[in-house]
Design a protein around this nucleic acid. Structure first.
Lengths: 119, 119
DNA sequence: CAAATATACATAATTTTCTTATGCATAAGG
DNA sequence: CCTTATGCATAAGAAAATTATGTATATTTG
């Protein structure tokens, strides 16, 4: 019995962007737990981007191990939640990642030309 | 003796975008050879994106194997060049990839918010 | 003119990042 | 009661890149 779990994305372009997404959402929301992140992303992209658990949880663990996230365990309705939030280093890294993302978009615009513009 | 070869890019965001870049450049230029692509990309991004040979050549071979590219060997100044151009299927696929790229940017904009806008 | 750099291809080993497939457990809805 | 939703986790494998080589000719530079 498989629950037809849609992949993270149709295209391969999202590779490498998961960490940036996580850092930015945590910066906005203050703290979030894993499942909440997947739902938030799904909603914001109108179902077009589904983060898989196999990608998300290892990513969260890695960011935590790198000192970019702090974790806090909570029990809600007898179910476990692990709330993540940015550390100070995480806030700095988030800023860097967003700058890289803007640069990426700027460069892709030059290469692949342009229906979109910056600013 | 190592020639300090810079990586394809500082950030990981470019992962997955190489094929799209290749298809679009070939569409614009008509035909190009591998080394020419690396130089063109370097120039267009003002040196910020350096495609490595280890990424480029396997990608070209794969695109050719998939029927998206045709190759034509030439000898210039006693040196080998392999000119690639889009097949009909390659043209169609280029269109798809560009649409995916736009969708990717649109989704990232929703997620990570917004200094850039589409259109 | 010798040495270094640029041009031009290629591939193998490894790493990173993701998909796919599981696994466990509780809550809610039909 | 059975399915779906919530919530975590990890392992096996694939895909795409990095890093490190290797070969060869042409050009520039000290």
């Amino acid at each position: 019995m498989l629950g037809v779990v849609k992949a993270m994305a149709n295209s391969k372009l999202y590779k490498g962007s998961l960490n940036t997404i996580i850092l930015k959402l945590l910066d906005e929301e203050g703290k979030m737990y894993g499942y909440e992140i997947t739902q938030k992303v799904k909603k914001l992209t109108k179902g077009e981007l589904n983060i898989t658990e196999g990608a998300l949880y290892p990513a969260l663990h890695k960011l935590e191990a790198e000192g970019l996230l702090d974790v806090e365990v909570a029990k809600v309705d007898n179910r476990l939640r692990k709330y993540y939030k940015l550390t100070e280093q995480g806030v700095r890294e988030k800023t860097n990642r967003l700058a890289e993302l803007e640069e990426f978009v700027r460069n892709m615009q030059q290469l692949v030309n342009p229906k979109w513009s910056i600013e």
